[in-house]
Nucleic acid binder design. Structure first.
Length: 1108
RNA sequence: GGGCGAUUAGCUCAGUUGGCUAGAGCACCUCGUUUACACCGAGGGGGUCGCAGGUUCGAGUCCUGCAUCGCCCACCA
């Protein structure tokens, strides 16, 4: 084997071909087969517009490690892969391309055309990220790829929406949302980030209408958004300002007593300020309170609207002037106030972010409206309002102020709170009788959020690390309703049709009137859910709350009509895919309802659902719900129309109303029945709330069981400065670049190695220029992975496999093997045990450490080195066999982490040594991907062997250390350095002498000495450097090799350190409390340590004596 | 404002129920191309574990406070 043959491991030359072999072999294909043991992971679907980034690479590495290991452990494994349609991001990407290339907006194209273009784009580019998963070696079942907008997911979305709507858990409301004026859509709270910007704090005066003697002529209010004053409909003061001040003061004093010193001055100042307010402000506030109670009005400047002065606790007497303007349509808190006081809501903002024409309550256009309408809301509009107020002498002062302003994640524009029609999922607790009617609320949960909280608290879902449970529980416990509508075109369109009509007309439709409407109302509640809402009012009529359900609350509607006619909106949500027997064949009821609705002038809601709505269903929608049998049948639609209850299918069971197949009695041959609930969900902590919580919720609601038992939260990778990796900063590392430079295994190794339980990990980033001129970001971190793979490759192919000539394995009794054989088998066993421990707790980094240490520092550094001389001699057979066996086991356990290189080596090992083992020989499986995971044979562990080997290693290390000292000094003296020392003397007890005699050759070659003497109880050699390990001394006579005086300083320094250490230990042992209270083993360790140190000191003192 | 995390060698990080003469990889220094590997081998230097108290026989580890950095959530007339 000439040197020129050896070359480094070249990942590029093997990875592609190996991946093809795996796919051709169908190893990743999942199929329910009745095996009890199964393991399923659903991938967090990456954004279909996206490319793989390092976070994906990390997350998918971890998932693949789990999946590959379980596959090798003989479980039926399924890693479900797919992508997310990512509403806003995808639509924005395609819109941008079209705008740039064709100069057209989405409005120019129209809804259908834009959606078609996005699909086109998705087909063309959407596969990229899945291709990149293949490059990484991810063992997903690519034949079952899903997409959150595919037919399967759409079906699940329709079913879920219908159920929630039917159960009264989805409602449509006028609510304040975060409005993105650029994208003209509502964005979720989670999609809003806050940024501090420079702004102003404006103090205005509002005139009191007809002030009485002794009453103030003006009220003082302050705002950071002056333009919203156009929409004010009240001014509030606190109902009990004196009591409120008392309460605040009491709280401050309480805080003062417990707070830290540095906070005290601030609190004291606040208390003082309260006292000041009590004097200067309180009388006015009390007066205002009385005025409010008397129903006094204010005149809103500029628009001359009469608005009431009201009492509400939202007005804080300790803040500002104690009065607050109320703008229900443009501020979330004011909205609440408006609800409490039944205040009118006046909207002055257009969808595209301009001041709207101001429509007063009586429906008339405000005569002053034209001055402002059309101005940009928060810029020109604001300026004009302030100017006009100034002209009217109503501006008291304007302060500079930093304002923390919400911005849209997507457009980076400031968010405007905007009153609009939105759809919500009710997360809060329901009235008991309502909750009891809803079968989807399991375990007697009071509401959706509570149900998901309970599941985690019961331990049905466990977080790793456990601390993240708190994030989940805290967030869900707020039970904030979930806004699920988005003003986009790309996504699942809300399956509700509606029409506005007079209540009187609606009531008149029963039994006559428009034909289509008549048809519509013949539909039973099972076929569609019909809901009637008063336009502009708070009344609504919902069939779910009515009994019997089929009446759609007609009685109530008629009763309401008696009080006076009004405009109502009728909403229809057709039941999805109901194929009723007895109706026209081949026409799903959903389509029929839809047709009737459209004929009757009903229009489908134009919004689409929040992307997270379909993501929330991911673990069960992708497995086939609702078509497949769910493990818990009760979870399915429970209400049925009267005319199909008597029908039963062949199995004698009643058919399910959605006509799902019922071939398998227990449903376990469907993907859903077999794989749900899945096993582990691995994700980043930022979506614990957005995604994990909602999956648990919908899983329980739809299926009746949690979607997974364990949630693994991995750290976030930052750059070297602790910043997030991002496109704008240009500090992102592209995993594909890393694969090209270092190989997929190196990428995976390094990422797994970094995956500790911390919350962030940093990765220093470097620029590198490629030959083609492209500049990429790399990180030296990946060298560790590359080096490891290369080391494994070199050791395996370059040494072990090449050394297997004439391999002829026999059944070996481990007890009869040589020390080093038994040692490596013992160490291997320990390694396997530690690996199991680490992996069972999702400690990926620890797993890597265990494997790294064993492969490199034990197998390569010691076992392989010790086998070299044996391979040339009569000991060849057992050495080959143990080498091959340990490599076999090592490849198996390394495979989930670094699948390519291990598979490549495996093939070669199979050729050179088809049968492997120790006591039992087994044929190596053809493919490692599917090979058996090693089982631990605890009998191979041998403490006595390990301690003997440890002594041997210590002796060798001692000689090496001395050799380095000698060569160091010879180097300085320009004398030739020595590969081997002439003589080493080991002085120990009889066992040590025997050990040394037995392994003389090893010691000589590994330590590097020509002669080795084992002596006992004889005089220490003179003129020698020595090291003491345990009770054994190792001496090398060096007087002829170097001038001993040269080493004096080093040895003195060493002596000093040892003496210090001994001092500490002796002090500890001198402490009676320690000896009595500490664990006996700890005391024994200390004694041992003291003895060791004393021995070492004695030896060093002897050197120093030699020098004089 | 509430919650969570981090602070250990020049850099990036381990350090399980307190027992440590505090570890690893990279970088650094010395020596070495003996036939698996220079993406290597042997050896070495480098740390009062952010700061201050406390509990304990014993603290990197537990408690309290402080400082700095970061993340999440809420709110700000």
């Amino acid at each position: 084997m000439a040197k020129s043959e050896s070359k480094t491991y070249d990942p590029a030359s093997v990875e592609k071909q190996i991946f093809e072999t795996w796919e051709k072999g169908g190893y990743f294909r999942a199929e329910p087969d009745g095996r009890e043991e199964r393991f399923c992971v659903v991938i967090p679907p990456p954004n279909v517009t996206g490319a793989l980034h390092l976070g994906h690479a990390l997350n998918n590495t971890l998932q693949d490690i789990l999946i590959r290991r379980e596959r090798m452990r003989g479980k039926n494994t399924f890693w479900l892969v797919g992508t997310d349609h990512a509403g806003i991001a995808t639509q924005a990407t395609v819109e941008k391309t079209i705008r740039e290339k064709e100069g057209k907006s989405r409005h120019d194209l129209g809804r259908d055309e834009l959606v078609r273009r996005i699909w086109e784009w998705k087909e063309k580019f959407g596969g990229r990220i899945v291709e990149q998963l293949r490059l990484m070696g991810c063992s997903c079942d690519y034949s079952r790829e899903r997409f959150t907008l595919d037919d399967m997911c759409a079906k699940a979305v329709r079913h879920t929406f219908f159920k929630l709507f039917r159960d009264g858990l989805i409602y449509r409301g006028k609510r304040l949302v975060n409005w993105d004026t650029q994208l003209q859509t509502a964005v979720a709270d989670d999609e809003v980030y806050h940024e501090t910007v420079k702004g102003h704090f404006y103090h205005f005066k509002y005139p009191v209408k007809n002030p009485q003697p002794g009453e103030p002529e003006h009220l003082h209010i302050a705002t950071t958004r002056p333009e919203t004053m156009l929409a004010d409909t009240a001014v509030a003061v606190h109902p009990e300002p004196d009591a409120a001040l008392d309460k605040v003061e009491a709280e401050l004093k309480e805080k003062l007593s417990t707070s830290a010193d540095k906070e005290k001055p601030g609190i004291e100042a606040a208390i003082e300020d309260l006292g000041e307010r009590r004097k200067s402000l309180l009388p006015t506030l009390l007066k205002l309170r009385d005025m409010a109670k008397a129903g006094r009005m204010m005149i809103l400047p500029l628009v001359d609207r009469e608005i009431p002065l009201i009492c509400d606790t939202w007005a804080k007497p300790e803040l500002g002037s104690g009065c607050v303007k109320i703008t229900p349509a443009h501020d979330p808190n004011d909205y609440e106030v408006g609800q409490r006081h039944d205040l009118p809501m006046i909207n002055v903002l257009t969808e595209d972010g301009k001041v709207a024409e101001i429509i007063e309550l009586d429906g008339s256009v405000n005569p002053n409206s034209s001055k402002y309408a059309g101005l940009k809301f928060n810029t020109a509009g604001r300026k004009k309002v302030v100017e006009d107020l100034e002209a009217a002498g109503l501006v008291e002062r304007i302060e500079d102020r930093l304002i923390d302003l919400g911005h849209s994640d997507r457009s980076k524009m400031p968010i405007e709170p905007f009153l609009s029609d939105q759809w919500f999922v009710r997360m809060s607790d329901l009235k008991r009788e309502h909750a009891a009617q809803i079968e989807g609320l399991r375990h007697h949960a009071s509401g959706l959020a509570q149900m998901a909280v309970d599941a985690v608290k019961r331990g049905d879902v466990r977080f790793h690390p456990a601390r993240y449970e708190k994030t989940y529980v805290d967030w869900l416990s707020e039970k904030r309703d979930w806004c699920i509508s988005r003003q986009l075109w790309w996504g699942h369109r809300i399956p509700v049709w509606s029409r506005v009509m007079k209540l009187s007309d609606l009531c008149a439709q029963t039994g006559r009137g428009e034909e289509a409407l008549e048809h519509l109302f013949e539909i039973t509640p099972c076929d569609a859910v019909i809901r009637v809402e008063e336009v502009g009012g708070n009344r609504h009529w919902h069939d779910i709350d009515r009994n019997p359900p089929s009446t759609i609350g007609w009685q109530e509607l008629r009763a309401a009509l008696q009080e006076g006619d009004c405009e109502v909106r009728v909403l229809i949500c057709p039941a999805p895919n109901l194929e009723h027997k007895g109706l026209e064949p081949n026409e799903a009821i959903a389509d029929r309802v839809q047709r009737y609705a459209e004929e009757a002038g009903f229009i489908q809601d134009s919004d689409v659902l929040d992307t997270w709505f379909s993501s929330a269903l991911w673990p069960h929608s992708t497995l086939g719900w609702p078509d497949a049998e769910a493990p818990i049948r009760a979870a399915t639609v429970r209400e049925r129309s009267p005319h199909d209850t008597e029908q039963t299918d062949k199995s004698g069971r009643q058919p399910l109303p959605d006509g799902r197949g019922s071939d398998s009695p227990d449903g376990t041959d469907s993907l859903l029945g077999y794989y749900y609930p899945t096993s582990v969900l691995s994700t980043a902590r930022e979506i614990i709330t957005l995604w994990v919580a909602r999956m648990v919720m919908t899983g329980l609601y739809n299926i009746g069981d949690v979607p997974f038992s364990d949630v693994v939260i991995h750290p976030v990778i930052q750059d070297g400065q602790g910043r997030k990796m991002s496109k704008t900063l240009g500090n992102g590392v592209d995993p594909v670049d890393i694969i090209h430079k270092y190989g997929a295994d190196a990428l995976r190794f390094t990422l797994a190695d970094l995956a500790t339980e911390t919350q962030d990990i940093r990765m220093p980033v470097q620029k590198e220029k490629l030959p083609d001129g492209r500049e990429i970001n790399i990180s030296p971190k990946f060298e560790k992975g590359r080096n490891f793979c290369n080391k494994l490759w070199q050791a395996s192919t370059g040494f072990v496999i090449r050394g297997l000539d004439g391999y002829a394995p026999t059944e070996l009794d481990p007890q009869t093997l040589r020390l080093e054989d038994r040692w490596i088998l013992s160490r291997m066993t320990t390694c396997l045990l530690e690996l199991e421990q680490a992996l069972s707790r999702y400690r990926f980094s620890e797993s890597m450490n265990v494997l790294y240490q064993f492969m490199w520092n034990e197998y390569c550094d010691w076992y392989i080195e010790m086998s070299k001389s044996r391979l040339a001699g009569p000991e060849r057979g057992p050495a080959q066999q143990v080498l091959a066996y340990v490599l076999d086991q090592l490849l198996r356990v390394l495979h989930p982490f670094i699948p390519f290189v291990t598979e490549a080596i495996w093939t070669e090992l199979n050729t050179a040594a088809p049968n492997r083992g120790c006591a039992n020989l087994e044929k190596g499986e053809p493919a490692l991907v599917n090979a058996k995971w090693p089982s631990v044979d605890a009998s191979l562990r041998d403490d006595a062997v390990e301690s003997q080997m440890a002594e041997l290693q210590a002796i060798i290390k001692a000689v090496r250390e001395i050799r380095t000292i000698v060569n160091g000094h010879r180097g300085k003296e320009k004398q030739p350095t020595m590969r081997t020392l002439p003589l080493a003397v080991v002085m120990g007890d009889r066992d040590t002498s025997k050990l040394v005699e037995t392994h003389r050759e090893f010691i000589q070659s590994l330590a590097g000495c020509d002669l080795l003497e084992a002596r006992s109880k004889e005089a220490k050699p003179a003129g020698a450097l020595g090291r003491v390990v345990g009770s054994t001394g190792v001496y090398v006579p060096v007087a002829d090799l170097i001038d001993l005086k040269q080493v004096r300083q080093d040895e003195e320094k060493k002596l000093e350190e040892l003496q210090k250490a001994l001092g500490r230990t002796e002090k500890q042992l001198g402490n009676e409390d320690f000896v009595q209270r500490a664990a006996p083993t700890v005391v024994e360790q200390a004694r041992q340590r003291a003895a060791d140190l004393a021995g070492q000191i004695e030896t060093l003192e002897q050197h120093l004596a030699d020098l004089t």
